[in-house]
């Protein structure tokens, strides 16, 4: 892989700076005394000395520019501070939660790209046919489903009525399973949230793929391939697919990052101990350092996903390779 475009790297750097700055500014822009955010409802009971102490502890008495520099320092050194609520190091909390979110988002990414791309390709290939029309209608309907509703529906069917799958958590509590039994347990818990996320992601992938395929099918070079005597299958795999997939990759990258945010709702519905749930807890507990850290992770996820798409593009399309 050739070295990345300097311009591109510059763009990423700008995004990071803007995101970090926003992250820094947000709690400070919120209405109300920061003290109230830190100490919560107890703020009225504190003595002036205690207040000064708290403010000095978290560095809020420093000039704003120093606070900003400190924030950068903490990010660069990887020390995200401590939770106001639990007092635990945030690094630890994130490390605990991130894998679960990655499992959900990654699982949903794989499933939705497989279903979306395959169904989208079939739909476009037989445009207006017996498969395409119901599929297209169904996908548009699915796309408009609210995620919490779908999650609750699945819980009520599979966990409550049928009782075949667990409805909350990532592992069975206090089961102390090992080996395959543990894997199985984790997967059982992940099935419903992943399904919910996948169902919500698939229509977008499908629509992007279908549209992209239709675009490519109308290209002159498809006619050239036909005029060479290539079979339909050969045209589909040799000429259409690779050209059509590039926009889908971009979509998947955005979608993957979006799943992180979407996880807030899904993980709450399924009481899943991921990053989204952490955000939910932090928001309800006004635990600002945790929220800031979680947002930072979201930003990083978005950037990583975009970077991957940027790196994949030249592989798929020689025109985007820098010579």
């Amino acid at each position: 892989m050739k070295r990345l475009d300097l311009q591109k790297l510059g763009q990423y750097a700008i995004v990071i700076v803007v995101a970090v700055t926003l992250n820094f500014a947000l709690p400070r822009l919120m209405p109300g005394n920061p003290l109230a955010l830190i100490a919560g409802v107890d703020v009225g009971l504190l003595t002036p000395e205690q207040r000064a102490q708290i403010i000095a502890d978290v560095g809020l008495d420093e000039p704003i520019i120093n606070q900003y520099a400190d924030y950068w320092k903490s990010i660069v050194t990887g020390d995200l501070g401590q939770s106001y609520r639990s007092g635990r190091p945030i690094n630890e909390m994130i490390a605990e939660r991130l894998p679960w979110t990655l499992l959900l988002a990654g699982g949903a990414l794989v499933l939705s790209s497989i279903f979306g791309i395959v169904l989208g390709a079939i739909s476009a290939w037989r445009r207006g046919g017996k498969v395409d029309v119901p599929l297209l209608t169904g996908m548009i309907a699915l796309q408009s489903l609210p995620s919490f509703w779908l999650g609750m529906l699945l819980i009520s069917i599979f966990a409550v009525n049928l009782g075949v799958l667990p409805s909350f958590g990532a592992v069975s509590p206090a089961a102390n399973l090992e080996g395959w039994a543990q894997v199985r347990d984790v997967l059982e818990h992940a099935v419903l949230p992943i399904t919910t996320l996948s169902v919500l992601s698939t229509p977008g992938v499908y629509l992007t793929m279908r549209y992209s395929m239709l675009e490519v099918l109308g290209e002159d070079f498809i006619r050239t391939a036909r005029s060479k005597g290539a079979s339909e299958r050969r045209i589909l795999f040799g000429h259409v697919a690779r050209n059509a997939i590039a926009p889908v990759i971009t979509f998947l990258a955005i979608r993957f990052a979006f799943s992180f945010g979407g996880a807030v709702i899904i993980e709450t519905v399924f009481s899943y101990p991921g990053l989204g749930r952490l955000v939910f807890e932090a928001v309800s507990g006004r635990d600002f350092p945790v929220m800031q850290a979680a947002f930072l992770v979201f930003t990083a996820a978005v950037l990583m996903a975009n970077l991957t798409a940027d790196l994949l593009y030249p592989v798929l399309d020689p025109r985007t390779r820098s010579s």
Binding site: T224, R226, S227, K228, G229, R242
Partner: peptide
């Protein structure tokens, strides 16, 4: 028959060639 007994050339050579395959591969395909 297509490509074997009748060959065809189109108007716009840029859009008539597949952008993701080398020229050699596209000739070789026939």
């Amino acid at each position: 028959v297509r490509g074997r007994e009748i060959g065809m050339v189109f108007q716009d050579p840029m859009s008539s060639l597949n952008p993701v395959h080398t020229v050699g591969k596209q000739i070789g395909e026939s």
